[in-house]
Design a protein around this nucleic acid. Structure first.
Lengths: 260, 260
DNA sequence: CATTTCTTTAGATCACATGTAAAGGCCCGA
DNA sequence: TCGGGCCTTTACATGTGATCTAAAGAAATG
């Protein structure tokens, strides 16, 4: 059954594991698989917004699971804003604007070649350009000693030559996630999933592999050092600059498609 | 049963209806009520983080619904990051940091006197101070004619003397929501729920009732006019100023507690 | 005898099956 | 055009077995 389900999802192999918990909180087992299958289908336009999905018995039949499991799966998707259900109305895909795009799963379910993913990447980049510099500024003012240490360590750990891509990626995740945490603002923390997911996507696209690393590492270090010396304005400026550089590199690289 | 459930939720009467759909996408009927009851209990510390909630049969018994309904409700709460379930582990409340605080329900479930609500209000205000000025700037560059018209109309509609608080509130919601939409960035739109919810809370606290209206209206108009003349820098500055004023008024007012 | 480690068991959710209730469109007739 | 029955589809209820984990208990060890 695993093979069957894996085939049905069309899941590509996951290259990198996120070093931090995104709080996905999905169920495990059959329901999780059903959620992924249906989520991927919706994300990749197998069912389009406004369209009525097959009925519960039909989905149960075609997925080889019980109606209960289908219902549970649909409920999860409903919680992410992807579908709406009602009696006699059926289960319909909601317009993309209603989707919980900050959810890591929703982004990750898209095929790497899906145009929407690039749109989302661009929009995330725009949002990051607004949020992260200010977050770095707040972190410079409020970060605890431990947080500063973690940020600095992560920045210096980004040796492109020294290790595997996984280590770079882990350090990058820690860097950005810790800065968001260090603002002490829990709402900032809510942006972690989408930021880390986009980070993951950009790694999959090989953004970091294309000779950007030394510059990127210097940028990270500049931000970290500004935070260490409690220089809010400096942290903001350095983060801005780093993100702009990253944006340009990403825009160039993503045209070529994924390398993973 | 309605009475019973209403009593059990401890729900306070809702004073204002949001003029826009927050996309709550909660199920309707018994499950919705069960979600609200349990959600309110968790939000108001009836069950504390780390604590094990009653078992499914116990909750079904005490709520007067079936196990299925309880399970569905818990699944919704799980999707909002408020609880985690596992076999033998029980259903436990997750730490507040994991909660989906951008979710309108999570915020709205808090009792008006709950200290966390004031923290969330402060954090939302901080986030708004970062996001909304930039959003106004983007809106100035990208808004469609219709959106500009809606923003301008909403701003001028904020006549404090002319009508009921409901109308003011509706105009305020339209104003902020449309600006976020006008950025054309779907991720910005995801911030609508929490912003509108906090707007709602501030109205409940009577922030607008305390002689702030004329100034606030002028601020809204200034932003709207800047957007109309495609003055991004002006829109940013005016929005910044307006939010800062709002922040100060809110901080002062919320000490007195809700008026509704 | 105290302490650590291993094993067992109880208890809770998960997954599934199936049946009934209710609600919301759809169609037909007036 | 509008109103009232159908009929489809999800919502809710209940029962059963499987599975997993945390904690209690047993055994081995210092």
């Amino acid at each position: 059954m695993i093979e069957t389900l894996a085939t049905k999802t069309g899941a590509r192999p996951v290259v990198l594991d996120l070093p931090v918990d995104l709080g996905s909180s999905l169920p495990t087992g059959a329901t999780k698989l059903a959620v992924e299958i249906l989520g991927r289908r919706i994300a990749n336009d197998a069912y389009r917004p406004g369209e009525v999905m097959p009925t519960e018995p039909e989905l149960a039949e075609s997925l080889g699971v019980s109606r209960t499991t289908v219902r549970d799966a649909i409920k999860v998707l409903s919680g992410k804003g992807m579908v709406r259900t009602a009696r006699r109305y059926g289960t319909r895909v909601r317009p993309v604007e209603e989707w919980n795009l900050l959810d890591a799963d929703v982004a990750a379910w898209h095929d790497p070649t899906h145009p929407r993913l690039q749109v989302m990447f661009a929009e995330t980049t725009e949002l990051r350009g607004i949020i992260e510099p200010q977050a770095a500024g707040l972190a410079a003012e409020r970060a605890t000693g431990e947080q500063i240490a973690a940020i600095v360590e992560a920045a210096y750990a980004m040796h492109p030559q020294s290790g595997a891509v996984e280590d770079l990626f882990a350090a990058d995740c820690t860097f950005h996630a810790t800065i968001l945490d260090a603002t002490g603002n829990l709402l900032m923390r809510q942006l972690r999933p989408i930021i880390l997911t986009m980070l993951w996507i950009s790694y999959e696209y090989g953004v970091l592999a294309k000779s950007q690393e030394p510059v990127s590492r210097d940028g990270h270090i500049a931000v970290a050092e500004a935070i260490r010396r409690r220089d809010a304005a400096g942290a903001r400026a350095e983060m801005s600059q780093m993100l702009e550089l990253n944006r340009r590199t990403a825009a160039q690289t993503m045209q070529d498609g994924p390398t993973g």
